[in-house]
């Protein structure tokens, strides 16, 4: 009468299960590609970087500047310039980005928001080569040179301002998401106590969204450090740079140093460890941004878990 159901029947037919297994293997393989890419990056960087650091004359790592074509590999030059440019960028992006985020999240009417947010996103979609061109042809002569008459045509200042424009939308969108994620109940509690909007934003929303805001800043910093084209074009796209702390001088960041070496003419290149130095700088850059990103991910996870 009633058919007896066996365990076999419940498992479904074998063909289906085989397909299921094959599909899963395919997906796992796809997932492993990312790990393979990571390993490839590390391998391709580490080999040459090692041959650089094991052969380089250590005294050439601390000299007047970064001139890889004549064997002067002053890493501090690159670190200082990277810090200055990323710092200027952050000084621009933090107030602009946070202000824009707070306005969009807390003040803008839904209708205004529908227009304003995509506009900020347009800014985020502008390629860095465009901002590099603009930093060189507009920010440098029209802004930097007008304020500081001693400024040269290529300055870290112009590059830093350009980087600031690049990362502002990043700070704005990630911070806005974090503020939007703060539950309405917290705001209502604050209003209930008689606080107005300004106080609520500063004393309730900001602290509650802090981990997300911090994450946005670390992400922006990492992006600023990893940005190549703006610095390469606006801070002097040449093979070397003197060590300097003056933002009105030309400078060479880690990224721009790699690009400059890779695009130059061969005639003076290829001496000694010039080629290997490129990979050493690349590895340094990789490790710094890796550390920053892990940190930022930790903060993101924190605010995701909170609410």
């Amino acid at each position: 009468m009633t058919q007896q159901l066996t365990l076999e029947d419940l498992a479904g037919d074998a063909k289906r299960r085989n397909r299921e297994r094959r599909v899963k293997v395919l997906f796992v393989a796809a997932g492993l590609v990312s790990i393979a890419v990571s390993i490839l990056i590390i391998l391709s960087l580490a080999g040459e970087a090692w041959s650089f650091i094991s052969q380089v004359d250590l005294s050439s790592l601390w000299t007047v500047g970064w001139f890889p074509r004549r064997g002067l590999y002053d890493i501090p030059t690159l670190i200082i310039a990277t810090t200055i440019i990323a710092g200027i960028g952050m000084l621009v992006a933090i107030p602009l980005g946070l202000g824009a985020a707070a306005y969009l999240a807390e003040y803008a009417s839904p209708r205004a928001r529908r227009w304003l947010k995509p506009t900020v996103e347009i800014l985020a979609g502008i390629p860095s080569v465009v901002l590099g061109f603009w930093a060189l042809t507009f920010i440098s002569p029209e802004v930097v040179a007008r304020i500081f008459s001693s400024a040269k045509p290529f300055t870290m200042m112009a590059a830093g301002l350009g980087v600031g424009v690049l990362i502002t939308p990043l700070v704005a969108t990630v911070s806005e998401d974090a503020m939007k994620a703060v539950p309405m109940s917290l705001r209502e509690a604050s209003y209930g106590l008689g606080a107005d909007r300004a106080v609520t934003v500063r004393k309730v929303v900001f602290p509650a969204a802090l981990s997300g805001i911090v994450a946005s800043m670390i992400l922006a910093l990492s992006r600023a450090i990893g940005e190549t084209m703006i610095v390469f074009m606006a801070a002097g796209a040449v093979g070397g740079a003197l060590r300097t702390f003056n933002p009105l001088d030309p400078g060479q960041t880690m990224t721009a140093a790699i690009a400059a070496l890779a695009t130059g003419s061969d005639q003076v290149a290829g001496q000694g460890l010039t080629f290997q130095s490129l990979f050493f700088v690349g590895l340094l850059l990789f490790l710094i941004t890796l550390a920053l990103n892990s940190l930022s991910n930790r903060f993101v996870r924190k605010y995701r878990e909170q609410y």
């Binding site: 990312s34 990979f279 990789f286």
Partner: peptide
């Protein structure tokens, strides 16, 4: 998951070296 998130932050010029 961590690898993917970290890879997303690697500067583009490093991919160029690769």
């Amino acid at each position: 998951d961590t690898t993917v998130r970290n890879l997303a932050g690697v500067p583009s010029i490093v991919y160029g070296l690769l």
